[in-house]
């Protein structure tokens, strides 16, 4: 897959070979996690191992791995050194598996600082990260200061994508982001919602405004966006980020211990989490899902859901009626 993300957040249109931090998740032993820049690791080329499925950002030549990393709750660990190390380990495994997009928000407590800590500890090249954050303020003039503070916490100069969090004061904040993009200080703009809320307003903004991304909740149980939002995103060339793919962990917890349906094997899904992610990212409008986790084995499992098996050349994903069958199987298992 050819694509990369420029560190200054101003997306270039030419292809550059995607860089990876390590050549694959397999290079990490049990608990063996990257804690420092490895010589030459940042220049290792993707061809050296199976690479995760990428989805093109509509209207551009760039693509993103179809699974990113959320930070809601999981990365809000304050100054706890043990938990900071744990989050850094999760990030290391994420990048090692070919991940790129990390999503956060000023609302998420210390999550931004945790990400900044992890990036610094790991010595990750800026170009390996698709830095995604949000502006979240009802202060008409508070956006720029908040964005500067967010960038400082991440330890970066500019973001690849900034979204208006939960559409809060979007009338003032979205133009700010659009101006930043026009000035070359931002790669992409977007808006977010979650829990299926305010889709009417979301649809209006999608119709009226020039935005590159939306972020919505979508999983086999929460499918409200299928009716209007996702088709509209396809029609308007808007990339779609999916939050709460596991309903904040409650869905996978509820499915724990339940036998996997036979159709899971058809797509190489070895866990409920993988089956859910395959269901989500197989929707033609979806660009990527951003599950959040505190566990290294879970982030590897998530990335493996979109990485071809060693003996395969592509990721097996359901289509059409097969997707409906997965949703029905999950509903039946609950």
């Amino acid at each position: 897959m050819n694509a990369t993300f420029k560190g200054n957040g101003n997306m270039t249109r030419h292809h550059i070979t995607r860089r990876t931090f390590l050549t694959g998740a397999g290079m990490l032993g049990i608990g063996g996690l990257v804690a420092a820049r490895l010589p030459g690791a940042g220049l290792a080329h993707a061809a050296s191992g199976p690479q995760p499925l990428h989805h093109r950002i509509p209207g551009t030549d760039h693509a993103l791995p179809a699974v990113g990393l959320g930070s809601w709750i999981t990365f809000n660990v304050g100054n706890d050194p043990v938990l900071l190390k744990n989050c850094t380990d999760v990030m290391a495994a994420f990048f090692a598996a070919g991940g790129a997009m990390i999503d956060s928000s000023p609302m998420y407590g210390s999550s931004q600082a945790t990400i900044g800590h992890g990036l610094a500890e790991l010595g990750i090249d800026r170009e390996q990260v698709f830095a995604t954050d949000k502006v979240w303020t009802s202060d008409e003039d508070g956006g720029p200061e908040q964005i500067d503070e967010s960038a400082r916490r991440w330890g970066i100069r500019q973001f690849n994508l900034l979204q208006v969090h939960n559409m809060l004061d979007w009338e003032n904040q979205l133009p700010l982001l659009q101006d930043m993009k026009a000035a070359g200080a931002l790669g992409y703009t977007g808006i977010t919602t979650s829990h299926g809320r305010r889709h009417d307003l979301l649809g209006i903004i999608m119709e009226r405004e020039a935005i590159d991304f939306i972020q919505v909740t979508y999983n086999p149980l929460d499918r409200a966006v299928e009716d209007r939002i996702l088709p509209m995103a396809r029609e308007r060339n808007i990339a779609v980020i999916i939050n709460r793919p596991f309903r904040g962990g409650r869905l996978t917890k509820a499915l724990r211990g339940q036998p996997m349906p036979g159709l899971a094997a058809d797509y190489g899904a070895q866990s409920w989490a993988q089956l859910i992610l395959k269901y989500i990212v197989s929707h033609p409008a979806v660009t990527c899902a951003i599950p959040a986790t505190t566990r290294v084995d879970h982030v590897r499992e998530n990335m493996a859901a979109i990485t071809p098996m060693p003996d395969a050349d592509k990721v097996l994903l359901p289509e059409g009626k097969e997707r409906h069958a997965i949703a029905r199987a999950i509903e039946a298992a609950l």
């Binding site: 709750i73 999981t74 809000n76 609302m107 998420y108 407590g109 009802s138 939960n166 559409m167 809060l168």
Partner: peptide, 15 residues
């Protein structure tokens, strides 16, 4: 969109 659109769960920031 305003603050009253949020639910209590939205403000649970930590585990």
């Amino acid at each position: 969109t305003a603050w009253w659109d949020y639910s209590l769960a939205d403000f649970l920031l930590f585990s």
